[in-house]
Nucleic acid binder design. Structure first.
Lengths: 126, 126
DNA sequence: CTATTATTGCAACTCAGTCGCAAAAATAGA
DNA sequence: TCTATTTTTGCGACTGAGTTGCAATAATAG
């Protein structure tokens, strides 16, 4: 169902994603917005923004949840076909605009494929 | 460094992977071997077997840790280039023997790519 | 402005995974 | 085979991400 009322928490969280082009981890949001929004609220708002196709989520290599702005997603088609890149040095994650074709597998019906690429980002290559 | 001594726990855990070709979640192993091996020991043994290149690990769509037997891995080259397939109905995970090429990305140094494919397995397609 | 309904904060909880430490088990060497 | 050494195990307590129920608060319709 998603967002019905425009609340302060929702505005604050949307601002976080407007000012950053990269993905943001929920744990990071909780730390930074601690004085302003409750942890449960953060989880609940992000969940709704994902339902609305505003954000998409995925887990990093540690199983931590991240969110990023959707560009081509909406609430009908929300497949996150693009891969995510996590820097092993600084931990930062970017959405890579690259359309990895979802592989077909015999005898199985494939819905989604999530790819997490690991390596060093531009700033961390010394 | 990996396994140094052949203990009962190690034998038991190796048996679990010999009799199954599919991946096994740590939580499942803990439930099934509860009376025989302590939870901490299970985590520690699996970690060592991964160091030795006997098993490889990955996280499923819920962030839960799974292990599977390595076929072409060893302690020097341990890249898990193959994708994993998780059935959204029964939760079972298989290693798919398909060599997805690791994508190259401009300005970044890429080490590993992990792909989790989601869909319905043969038994769950109705 | 008020009634209704969605949203929030709070505190307590769940559950996977980790850690320190003393006890037990495996191995090497005599 | 026995003993000393070192690894491995079990235990219990802990950590930290994410969830839940509920009462209080805030947004919206009318």
């Amino acid at each position: 169902m998603g967002i019905i009322r425009k609340t302060e928490s929702i505005k604050l969280l949307l601002t976080e994603f407007h000012k950053k082009k990269v993905a943001v981890s929920v744990t990071d949001l909780i730390k930074r917005l601690d004085s302003k929004i409750n942890k449960s609220t953060i989880y609940r708002v992000l969940e709704k923004l994902e339902e609305d196709g505003v954000l998409h989520s995925f887990l990093d290599k540690y199983g931590i949840k991240w969110y990023a702005k959707c560009v081509a997603c909406n609430h009908k088609e929300h497949y996150d076909a693009h891969p995510h890149f996590q820097c092993v040095s600084c931990g930062k994650i970017d959405c890579i605009s690259m359309d990895l074709s979802i592989p077909k597998i015999p005898n199985r019906e494939v819905f989604v494929a999530q790819t997490l690429i690991q390596g060093k980002c531009e700033s961390c290559i010394s």
